[in-house]
Design a protein around this nucleic acid. Structure first.
Lengths: 203, 203
DNA sequence: ATACGAACATACACAGCGTATGTCTCCAAC
DNA sequence: GTTGGAGACATACGCTGTGTATGTTCGTAT
C-alpha cells in the first residue's frame, strides 16, 4: 500500500503541501480577500503558476485548507465522544473538545470566520454537511432517540446548535490569547446550561 | 422642522434614495461580491460617478442599505416589546416579531447572509452593537435582573442568543417562499423551548 | 449677468484573478 | 545515451472591477 513515489512525484507533493501550509497561514492572518495568490506563491519561492497547477482556482485552494482543518477537528471530537458510553455524556465531551480545539486561532479564523466569506453561505453549508453539521445532526438524533431530548423537528434544532457552537468558535477565535481559557470556560458554562435546559428528564 | 428644500437638493435626495433602492435589490438578489457599482448605477440611469459622489466606497453603500433595513426591524421589534408588561413576555413577543420580519427575503439575505461577508465579522459586529446585538444584550440583562434568567456572564449569553436568532434568520432567508411560515413556526418552537429551558422559576 | 459650487459624467491607474502559452526536467523505452 | 513525451512549473496577457482624478453641466446666490 505504499507505492514508492518517483522523485518528481515526491517534489510535487512537497510543493503542494508547502502551498497548503503557506495558504493556511496567509488566510488565517490576513483573511481570504486580502490574501493574493502571488503572496502565497512567493512565500514558498514559487509563482502563481504553481498554485494554478495544483488547484483550479483560489477558492479551491481555500477549500483544501478548510478540509484539512475540519477533518482533523472531527477526528479528535469523534475520538473523544467514542470514549463515552452515555449519549449525553458523549455529547458534552464532544462540545468540550470542540471548544478546546477552537482555541487555536488558525482554526477559528479560517473555519468560522473566513470560510463563509470565501465559499459563500451555501457552499460553506454544503461542506459542513460532511463535518460539523453532519456530526451535530446525528448526535442530536441519537439524543432524541435515547430520550434525552424532546422530539422537536430535527432540522431547526441541529441548525441552532450548529450556530450556538459557531458563536463560541468565533468568540474564541477573536479572543486575545491570554483570555481564551476564560472565554472558553464561560461559553462552556453557558452552553451546558442551555443544553441542560433543553434536556428531558430521563424516563 | 421642514426646511424647504431647494430644487437641487431635492434632485440629489431622490437620486440618493434611488441608489439605495437599486443597491438593496442588487445586493439582495446577487449578493455583495457579484454586484458591481456599474450595475447599480445603470439601474437608475446614472453612472458610477453618482455612486461615488453619494458614498465614499462600495462597502459604505452597503452599510447604508444595511442600516436602513436594520433600523426598521429594530423599530418594529421594540414597538411590539413595549406593548408587554412582563419582561419575559416582552422578550417572547420580540422574538416572534423578529421571526416574522425575517421572512422578508431581502432582510434575511442582506442582514444575515451578506453583511458579515461585505463588512467583515468585526465591522458587522460593530454595526450590530447599535441594533440587534445591543437590543439583545439589554433584554437579557433585564431578564437577569428580573430573575427570569440565571446570572451567567452576560457576554456569552447574549452572543449565543444573537447567533440563535441569526440561525433562524438565515434559515428563513434561505427557505423557499411557500415554506417560510412552516420554517418560522418550527424555529419559533425550538427557540421557545431552548429559552424556556434556560429560564429560572420566578421566585 | 455672472461666478461659484454642488451634482454628476468621463477617463485613467492599478490590483488581482484566470488562462494561454512557453520552458525545463525527469523518466521510460529503444 | 539519446529521444519522445508528459508532468511541473514559469511567463505573459486579457479582463473585470474598484477607486481616483479630472472634466462638464446646471441650479442658485449676489
Amino acid at each position: 500500500m505504499s507505492p514508492v513515489k518517483s522523485r518528481r512525484e515526491q517534489y510535487s507533493d512537497e510543493t503542494r503541501a508547502a502551498l497548503l501550509d503557506a495558504a493556511t497561514r496567509r488566510f488565517a492572518e490576513h483573511g481570504f480577500a486580502k490574501t493574493s495568490l502571488e503572496d502565497v506563491a512567493t512565500d514558498i519561492r514559487a509563482t502563481r503558476g504553481a498554485v494554478y497547477h495544483h488547484f483550479p482556482n483560489k477558492t479551491a485552494l481555500f477549500e483544501a485548507v478548510f478540509h484539512e482543518l475540519e477533518s482533523e477537528m472531527i477526528r479528535r471530537v469523534t475520538e473523544v465522544a467514542a470514549g463515552e458510553t452515555d449519549p449525553w455524556q458523549a455529547a458534552m465531551s464532544a462540545v468540550r473538545q470542540f471548544l478546546d480545539g477552537s482555541c487555536d486561532p488558525v482554526y477559528g479564523r479560517i473555519v468560522w470566520q473566513e470560510a463563509p466569506i470565501a465559499l459563500g453561505w451555501r457552499r460553506w453549508r454544503e461542506c459542513e454537511e460532511k463535518y460539523a453539521y453532519g456530526l451535530i445532526e446525528q448526535t442530536i438524533q441519537s439524543l432524541m432517540e435515547s430520550g434525552d431530548m424532546p422530539d422537536l423537528p430535527l432540522e431547526p434544532v441541529s441548525h441552532i446548535t450548529f450556530h450556538i457552537l459557531g458563536a463560541a468558535g468565533m468568540a474564541l477565535a477573536e479572543a486575545p490569547p491570554d483570555e481564551k481559557t476564560r472565554v472558553r470556560d464561560e461559553y462552556a458554562r453557558a452552553i451546558r446550561h442551555i443544553l441542560n435546559g433543553a434536556r428531558l428528564p430521563r424516563t
